[in-house]
Computed example of a mutant assay.
Amino acid sequence: MKMTTDTQRLAQNRFFETISRRISLGAFQKHEAVQSEDGIVVHYLYDPPYEKSGGNNKSFSGALQTAASTCGVIYKDEFYDLKSSKAWTINAPLFGIPFGARHISVHIELPDSASVRPEGYRQFLRYVEGEQEQVATNHFSERVAALRPQWLIDIIRSLAPDARSSDDIRDELQKLLDELRVRRTAPKVEVDGPELATPEIGVGFISTRDGSRSSGGSKPRPTHSNISFAPTGAKAAALWEGKERAPEIIPLTTQEEVEEKNLKGRAARYYPTGELFVNMLYPAVEEMRTKLVDEYASAQDIESMREHAQQAAEQSMVLRVGRAAVYALAKQLNHEWDNEAVGFALRPESLSLAADDYQSSLQSARRSMGRVFRPNRGETEEEQAVELVA
Rank of each mutant, 00 (worst) to 15 (best):
Gln315Gly: 07
Val321Leu: 01
Ser364His: 09
Ala324Asp: 00
Leu319His: 05
Asp301Lys: 12
His308Asn: 09
Tyr327Cys: 00
Trp337Ile: 01
Arg320Asp: 00
Tyr296Phe: 15
Gln359Tyr: 12
Glu349His: 11
Ser304Arg: 15
Trp337Pro: 00
Ala328Arg: 05
Gln310Lys: 11
Gly322Cys: 04
Pro348Trp: 02
Gln300Trp: 15
Gln311Trp: 08
Phe344Glu: 14
Lys331Pro: 01
Met305Leu: 14
Met317Ile: 02
Met305Ile: 12
Ala345Lys: 02
Tyr358Gln: 06
Ser304Pro: 09
Asp356Ala: 03
Leu351Lys: 02
Ala345Trp: 01
Glu336Thr: 07
Gln300Phe: 15
Ser360Asn: 10
Ser304Gly: 15
Gln332Ser: 12
Ala309Val: 10
Ser352Gln: 07
Leu362His: 09
Arg306Ala: 13
Glu340Arg: 10
Val318Asp: 00
His308Val: 02
Ser352Ile: 03
Ser360Ile: 08
Leu329Gln: 13
Gly322Met: 03
Ala330Cys: 06
Ser304His: 13
Met317Thr: 05
Met317Ala: 00
Ala365Ile: 03
Gln363Ser: 13
Ala328Pro: 07
Gln359Lys: 11
Ser364Gly: 03
Met317Gln: 01
Ala345Asp: 04
Ala330Ile: 00
Asp357Ala: 11
Ser350Gly: 02
Asn334Val: 06
Met317Asp: 03
Asp301Gly: 09
Glu340Phe: 12
Ala325Gly: 04
Ser361Cys: 04
Arg323Asp: 04
Ala328Glu: 01
Ala328Thr: 04
Ala309Gly: 10
Ser316Asp: 01
Ala324Thr: 07
Leu362Glu: 07
Asp357Cys: 07
Glu340Val: 08
Ala345Thr: 00
Gln315Thr: 03
Tyr358Trp: 14
Glu303Lys: 14
Leu351Gln: 05
Asp338Ala: 08
Ala297His: 14
Leu333Glu: 10
Asp357Arg: 13
Gln311Thr: 08
Val318Ile: 06
Ser350Cys: 01
Glu349Met: 09
Leu329Asn: 12
Asp338Phe: 13
Ser361Met: 05
Gln300Ala: 15
Leu319Glu: 06
Arg347Met: 14
Gln310Met: 08
Gln332Arg: 14
Trp337Gln: 04
Asp301Ala: 11
Ala297Val: 13
Val326Gln: 01
Ala365Gly: 00
Ser364Thr: 05
Glu336Phe: 08
Ser298Leu: 15
Tyr327Pro: 00
Ala328Ser: 09
Tyr296Leu: 08
Asp357Lys: 12
Ala355His: 03
Gly343Thr: 07
Ser350Ile: 04
Arg306Ser: 10
Glu349Ile: 09
Ala328Ile: 05
Ala309Leu: 10
Leu362Met: 13
Ala330Thr: 06
Ala313Pro: 04
Arg306Gly: 09
Arg347Glu: 13
Ser364Arg: 09
Gly322Asp: 05
Asn339Ile: 10
Tyr358Gly: 03
Gln363Arg: 12
Gln310Trp: 10
Asn334Lys: 02
Glu303Asp: 13
Ser350Met: 06
Arg323Tyr: 09
Ala313Gln: 04
Ser361His: 05
Asp338Trp: 13
Ser350His: 07
Met305Lys: 15
Trp337Tyr: 14
Arg347His: 15
Tyr358Ile: 04
Trp337Lys: 05
Trp337Met: 03
Gln310Tyr: 09
